[in-house]
Write a protein that binds this DNA or RNA. Structure first.
Length: 662
RNA sequence: GCUGAAAUAGCUCAGUUGGUAGAGCACUUCACUCGUAAUGAAGGGGUCGUCGGUUCAAAUCCGAUUUUCAGCUCCA
């Protein structure tokens, strides 16, 4: 057989050979480094025997799949160590994940000290250098094997595998685990690993199941890479919006006010006001009409919209439901029905459509107590909500318009390269969650998919993520820890118009049902602010800064003059303040930096001329003396064009995911 | 909602096996009137998240509760 290697060279073998044997034949060094193989693009175990011609790539820890294998084997070593130290622990599953691996155990919660002991035990195991052996077992024998070992979770896993599935096991020394592999040849190949944390996790990810204990860890090819990863974990904490946003006094929380109810402080509120003014004006330019509708409504409204059936758990209900005569209200979790009644206020002609309604809408959602997080998951938030009531022939164009608006928002904020698009579909196996029939869902989902394809968006599709009334285009972004959130959503709805009896009179004189597009433009302001904090590490583009220029008189003597400069800046619409405290100029500059104020004007010399300012920016450092007029013109231009200076992005330590945006 | 950890001055934190509460920064006052990352001195400020219990005595031990954090689950 002929084996074609990565570099294009090929080798001929007479007999079937395993991947590791071929690797050893290429070079001893390669065999030592080998983590897995890739046969015609498919990742395989090193023990896999190759019998026919193929393209073979020996994967090392420098390859993604090789690294995953290394991490997976490390999770087995961790499981062995846990069994040594905690013999009563039961094994669940232990896969590799994006940045490392985990293993779930039924056990008492692990402390950091436990993790340190487990690490030490793992080092011993690695030092022993046991070979990993792969073998298979017939189903009945495999079940018996795991029952003998008193591993109920493993038994359940085997029983849930298809009857004809091959049941493979890997053993290292005395430790054996059910596992599909692939794995390293020897535990000795693990050079650098660290157990990062532990916490509870449900068996099979279902909250009705038992809570197991999960240990997270990571492994790398080299010690330096591990060190770099651990440093990276520390670094991202410094741009975590929940920490930085509080430090910068953008928001805070108060015990007695409650969970998920952050207070936006003056600076945070200013940023949101800037975004809100911008987006409201932009929507108006794009033909949206503003509405301002109530924050609550009677229960009956939500009965019509079906939120009472589908979403009551998530709503704040006011009034005594037990009292039949009592009026029951609920704070609104969405704006949809309110804007529908604006539409319904008059009979609409096909000429009135599309009807684009926009509202800066505050919503209330009663999230479970463990779900709240900073500004990204809250119980009250404000969203750039909108509903477009459209004729069938307008769906595509209007949907495109929404995508275009969303992209405009993202681009202006410098975030367009940080998002992924996901089409969220219903789950045909969970009909209770959704309105309508299978045929209706297929129709509307096909419609959305076609539009997205026409637009040329790259998107994934997810089942079971739709709204109860229709599929969504979700625009997703990851936070500094890699956790994904929906930032913007555009939804297609063919059900609610009917429930609310919305109609228009078509050209043929017939009453017809419109379609509804639910959408956000900039998304939820709180969440977007959180995203911006992390993206820019608090160093916002100037137009978004709550304080754009700080005037720093070098001593109190120049306080009056500084006040004049500040007034002049303000006259030009620049958000300016003056630091009049009688302190050293160096200290003032330091405080400016801490506050991440983009421009500092140091004043103190020639009092009456136009060049009395020395400009420092966080970008270029000392820009030297400048004409105040020129300075103002430059800043105004930067604010007007919503410029994002490359330097802001380049300072980003997490360069992997962020690209320079202009 | 679940598992775990945490809560001490505005902030960051120390506080030994239970014995009247500490530092740095910030703040106030005074002096200094200053040129690019910290001028000096003095001062004010905490029922140790809240409630209950054990004890002669609780920041410290126990229970409940609120909030925060990590993860899981959830996110129309």
């Amino acid at each position: 057989m002929k084996i074609t290697l990565k570099d294009g060279s090929s080798k001929e073998y007479e007999n079937a050979m395993s991947v590791i044997e071929i690797a050893a034949d290429v070079s001893e060094g390669l065999a030592r480094m080998a983590c897995a193989g890739s046969v015609d693009g498919k990742t395989v175990d090193l023990r896999t025997v190759i019998e026919k011609d193929c393209e073979l790539n020996i994967l090392t820890a420098n390859d993604e799949q090789g690294l995953r294998t290394l991490r997976h084997t490390t999770s087995h070593v961790m499981a062995e160590a846990v069994k040594h130290l905690f013999p009563n622990a039961k094994l669940a599953i232990g896969p590799s994940i994006d940045e490392g691996f985990y293993y779930d155990f039924e056990a008492e919660p692990f402390t950091r000290e436990d993790l340190d002991k487990i690490e030490a035990e793992m080092k011993k195991i690695i030092k022993q250098g046991n070979r990993l052996e792969r073998f298979t077992m017939p189903r009945a024998e495999a079940i018996q094997f795991m029952e003998d070992k008193e591993e109920p979770y493993k038994v359940e896993l085997i029983k849930d595998l298809p009857e004809d599935a091959e049941l493979s096991f890997y053993s290292q020394g005395e430790f054996t685990d059910l596992c599909a592999g692939p794995h390293l040849m020897n535990t000795k190949q693990i050079k650098a690993f660290k157990l990062v944390s532990s916490s509870g996790a449900y068996w099979r990810g279902k909250s009705e199941n038992a809570m197991l204990q999960r240990i997270y860890g990571s492994a790398f090819n080299k010690k330096e890479e591990l060190e770099a990863y651990l440093t990276h974990l520390e670094e991202i904490k410094t741009r975590d919006h929940n920490k930085l946003g509080r430090e910068m006094e953008l928001f805070t929380t108060v015990d007695v006010i409650g969970q998920g109810l952050p207070l936006l402080m003056p600076k945070g509120a200013k940023i949101i006001q800037t975004m809100q003014r911008w987006i409201e004006d932009e929507e108006e330019r794009r033909g949206y009409m503003r509405t301002k509708t109530p924050l609550m409504a009677k229960k009956e409204l939500y009965l019509i919209s079906d939120h009472w059936n589908h979403y009551k758990e998530g709503m704040f209900v006011l009034g005594d439901e037990a009292d039949e005569n009592a009026e029951i209200f609920a704070l609104r979790p969405m704006t949809c029905p309110f804007q529908y009644y604006v539409y319904k206020q008059s009979q609409k002609s096909y000429r009135d459509l599309p009807c684009r309604y926009g509202e800066t809408s505050t919503l209330f959602r009663n999230e479970d107590s463990g779900e709240m997080h900073g500004l990204t998951r809250v119980r009250q938030f404000t969203i750039s909500e909108g509903h477009l009531i459209v004729r069938p022939d307008q769906i595509e164009e209007e949907f495109r318009g929404c995508v275009d608006l969303a992209k405009y928002c993202l681009t202006t904020l410098g975030l367009e390269n940080d998002v992924t698009y996901c089409m969220s579909k219903w789950d045909p196996n969970n009909r209770d969650k959704y309105m309508g029939t299978e045929a209706e869902w297929n129709q509307v989902q096909d419609m959305m998919r076609n539009i997205l394809n026409h637009i040329g968006l790259t998107f994934t599709e997810e089942e079971g993520e739709a709204a109860f009334y229709g599929p969504k285009l979700d625009i997703q972004a990851k936070n500094v820890y890699g956790k994904e959130d929906t930032m913007i959503t555009i939804q297609l709805d063919m059900f609610l118009a009917q429930r609310f009896d919305m109609s228009y009179v078509d050209a043929d004189g017939e009453k017809k049902r419109p379609y509804i597009i639910h959408r956000t433009s900039i998304g939820c302001y709180e969440r977007t602010l959180a995203w911006l904090i992390e993206k820019y590490a608090g160093k916002f583009p100037t137009w978004l800064c709550p304080e754009q220029v700080r005037v720093l008189p070098i001593s109190e003597k120049y306080a009056d003059y500084a006040a004049k400069v500040e007034a002049q800046l303000k006259e030009n619409g620049i958000l300016a303040t003056t630091d009049c405290r009688s302190e050293k100029i160096g200290k003032k500059i330091r405080e400016c930096r801490l506050a991440k104020v983009p421009y500092m004007l140091v004043v103190g010399e020639k009092e009456e001329a136009d060049h009395l300012v020395s400009v420092r920016s966080r970008f270029e450092g000392d820009e030297g003396a400048k004409s105040l007029t020129d300075f103002i013109a430059a800043i105004c231009e930067e604010i007007r064009t919503k410029a994002i200076r490359e330097e802001i992005v380049q300072e980003d330590p997490d360069q992997k995911t962020k690209e320079v945006t202009k």
